[in-house]
């Protein structure tokens, strides 16, 4: 890139991109997801995956887990901007490398193939807690839980064995040990 000259700034130094997982506790009210997602799209932040569901029915709290990438400055902004939203109660921000936090994603894989190939597939899946949810003569639906990257790898690996359809939940996260995020 030639030397940037602009009244609108173009950074010359591109910061290193980190992957972070945000966990956001929000009031489960209409439009709240749109507010969170709109913040990301409006300010040009990335969303790699998104998982959301109500976790406390009496208090009406939903838990949103967002996987995103950005420079440390952008990650900081995401956290601070999220905290400004009125229905947001708290925001946790974990680095993907963080050993104190468990990240998991669930995937459903449909494999359509001959028996032998299906067996090979199931063998490959072994380390990811496979559960066979449906089985016919020429197909199987298997559920696995793993890290995002592991599922990425599995998808690639199983393609030649007859993987025809993948459905993924997006990553969710929880801290290890007795402590909860305050």
């Amino acid at each position: 890139m030639s030397s940037p000259k602009s009244a609108y700034s173009i950074p010359t130094k591109k910061g290193k991109l980190d992957t972070h997982i945000f966990v956001v506790w929000v009031d489960n009210e209409s439009g709240v997801l749109a507010r969170v997602v709109g913040l990301f799209s409006g300010r040009g932040y990335n969303i790699e995956s998104l998982a959301v569901a109500e976790v406390d029915a009496t208090k009406n709290i939903s838990r949103i887990t967002i996987v995103t990438t950005g420079t440390p400055q952008v990650i900081d902004q995401i956290k601070l901007q999220l905290k400004k939203l009125v229905p947001v109660h708290k925001v946790a921000d974990f680095k993907r490398e963080d050993k104190k936090v468990i990240f998991k994603e669930m995937a459903l894989l449909k494999i359509v193939a001959k028996k032998k190939k299906i067996e090979k597939c199931l063998k490959e899946c072994k380390k990811f807690n496979p559960v066979i949810l449906d089985k016919t003569n020429k197909s199987v639906v298997v559920q696995i839980t793993a890290l995002r990257r592991e599922i990425d790898k599995m998808s690639k690996k199983l393609k030649p064995y007859g993987l025809t359809s993948t459905s993924r939940t997006g990553a969710i996260a929880m801290t290890r040990g007795a402590d909860t995020f305050k």
Partner: peptide
């Protein structure tokens, strides 16, 4: 600020603001 990379290059900077998201943005 004009050009960000050459904005006030020699200074220590203090920012007083009520909005935390304005800091280091």
């Amino acid at each position: 600020t004009g050009k960000i990379d050459e904005f006030s290059p020699k200074s220590k900077k203090v920012h007083i603001d009520i909005d935390p998201s304005s800091i280091n943005k």
